[in-house]
Design a protein around this nucleic acid. Structure first.
Lengths: 189, 189
DNA sequence: GTCTATAAAGTGATAGAC
DNA sequence: GTCTATCACTTTATAGAC
């Protein structure tokens, strides 16, 4: 292809913009942020932003996708996935904007025609099955109650993680990671 | 006051509009519904709607408030509150629009200046303390494990209820009420 | 008091110049 | 590949009839 150089440059610019947008949404909230404001903070014009992301919802989806990549690599790589979940919840205290964005977009993605719909379907599918595997591993190692249904407990743990973020967003004194650890302890007793 | 008659009529009209709006949001989704569309479906003009609700977010808040009144009276009046929670989750399958509205508005209400902020703060405060009381009652009756911390388990149950709605919205095969019942069973074993 | 009509301010999205 | 200019549509606000 003749535009190989330009294509690579375009991808790099898109990554630059995505990283900057991720940073903006991490620090500032999600509410009230117009694309014009995001574009300004990122250092590009509105059409410049939309040249790389075909709509606002596509940009927001890409941000959450990028966040997952970074978080997975940082907090739950070569280790027990339940501990990884707790570590991610601890980290979430530092990125309130992403917490709010995640909940809002997850709710909106219910609509099958929403751009984020496939992302969330796939995300929950992967998270639930890998978490169920982690529970099975603990059961095999004798560090988890044998009578627990791995699929059910995985679903519950993910639900608690999502739901506790709503409560934390309204009341920052809520200890998200601690509550999950204590639930697991109560389920292991 | 001289306007007593008219005032009463205004309140009745507001209740009419609120009931109609609640019905619209229950059936249809929340996403994409403009105030003009709500007004049309309710049978009033846009300024007619805004005469009774000072902003869109105020209307949405009033809808959730009304829903809580109805649900509390219908599903958790003179009975065990944990059973009431399960019944409400079972009922929620019939009102997907309200489920989506609740999650979206709860996330947005994180902002202390959001009109729904006081509503959610108060709501979680009441729900958590009454649910903790219900857990204490079960412990006193010997039908719940004595080592459970009522406040912690109440917070976890509410988090599961909220989080499981997100998963259900994306995958309608999720059994919201059943998952909560099974979690309680696992915590009682 | 309640409504119809209309406009202001801001949003996401697009067309077309360079 | 990035801009200026503009569009259609949103929420919100106001003027004025009845």
């Amino acid at each position: 292809m003749a535009e190989r150089g330009s294509y690579a440059k375009g991808v790099a610019r898109r990554e630059e913009i995505l990283a900057a947008a991720l940073d903006v949404f991490s620090r500032e909230g999600y509410r009230g942020t117009s694309l014009r404001e995001v574009a300004k903070q990122v250092g590009v014009s509105l059409p410049g932003l939309m040249h790389y992301f075909e709509s606002k919802e596509h940009l927001l989806t890409a941000i959450l996708q990028k966040r997952d990549e970074v978080d997975t690599a940082t907090y739950s790589s070569n280790d027990d996935l339940i501990d990884g979940l707790v570590r991610i919840m601890r980290h979430n205290r530092d990125v309130p904007g992403l917490v709010q964005l995640f909940i809002t977009l997850a709710a909106a993605a219910e609509d099958p025609s929403h751009p984020a719909h496939p992302f969330f379907i796939d995300r929950y599918s992967v998270v639930l099955s890998t978490l169920a595997d982690a529970i099975r591993d603990r059961q095999a190692a004798g560090t988890a109650r044998a009578d627990l249904d791995p699929e059910h407990i995985a679903r519950v743990l993910v639900a608690v993680a999502d739901g506790i973020q709503i409560q934390w967003a309204l009341d920052r004194s809520v200890d998200m990671a601690g509550d999950i650890e204590r639930l697991w302890a109560a389920l292991s007793a």
